[in-house]
């Protein structure tokens, strides 16, 4: 649990300026909460990393090759049937099922990875106790800054001076 100061801004541009000023002051912006994705925000917070696409690739390849192996094993090894002299290993049509299944697995694994790496589902969170936090899903652009041990009021004044509508304390 980090004690943070939450500052709500009326639009994303004000939020981005505040992130820059907070960093210039030497404070640490922890996270931000916005109604829609804001370009460059995750980069500014140093949080622009996610393994989601790697998981999707792994899930897709595993699903696809697994499906192809199932076809090959069943049609060539376990149950070879001579259907009108067609080759047992009919790769020309065997790629159809692995393609569909691979895409499906990439999607399912990607969704699971998105939730797992975001720590969701987590129905409650200390931030939800902060009055006004619900604006972050509507029209408020909220910045969370680690509360400095010395002179927290200076940070608070600085945030209010950068167009913040309100500044409140919370835990993240």
């Amino acid at each position: 649990m980090t004690r943070v100061l939450l500052a709500c801004f009326p639009h994303p541009e004000a939020l981005m300026i505040a992130v820059r000023r907070v960093k210039e002051e030497g404070a640490v912006p922890v996270d931000a909460f916005t109604p829609h994705p804001v370009d460059g925000l995750a980069e500014a917070l140093g949080a622009a990393r996610t393994p989601v696409r790697k998981w999707m690739l792994a899930g897709g390849l595993l699903g696809g090759f697994g499906a192809y192996f199932t076809e090959w094993f069943s049609a060539v090894i376990d149950l070879p049937i001579n259907a009108g002299g067609r080759p047992l290993h009919s790769w020309e049509v065997f790629y159809l099922f692995p393609f569909e299944f691979g895409v499906l697995m990439a999607g399912i694994v990607g969704a699971a990875a998105l939730l797992a790496t975001s720590g969701l589902p987590r129905l409650n969170h200390p931030l939800f106790d902060v009055q006004g936090f619900e604006r972050s899903s509507q029209d408020g652009f909220i910045l969370a800054v680690e509360q400095p041990e010395r002179h927290p009021e200076r940070l608070r004044d600085m945030l209010l001076a950068s167009e913040a509508l309100w500044v409140r304390e919370g835990k993240t």
Binding site: D31, A32, F33, T34, P35, H36, P37, V38, L41, A42, L45, A47, A48, T50, V52, R53, M56, A106, G107, G110, A111, A113, L114, L115, T117, S118, L120, P121, R122, L123, N124, H125, L127, F128, S136, S137
Partner: peptide, 20 residues
């Protein structure tokens, strides 16, 4: 699922959604 609009979540979400 407790979605809280975090910038980190949005970042992963956009990467995921475009890949999908």
């Amino acid at each position: 699922l407790g979605w809280r609009n975090s910038a980190r979540h949005w970042y992963a979400y956009e990467k995921y959604y475009k890949a999908m």
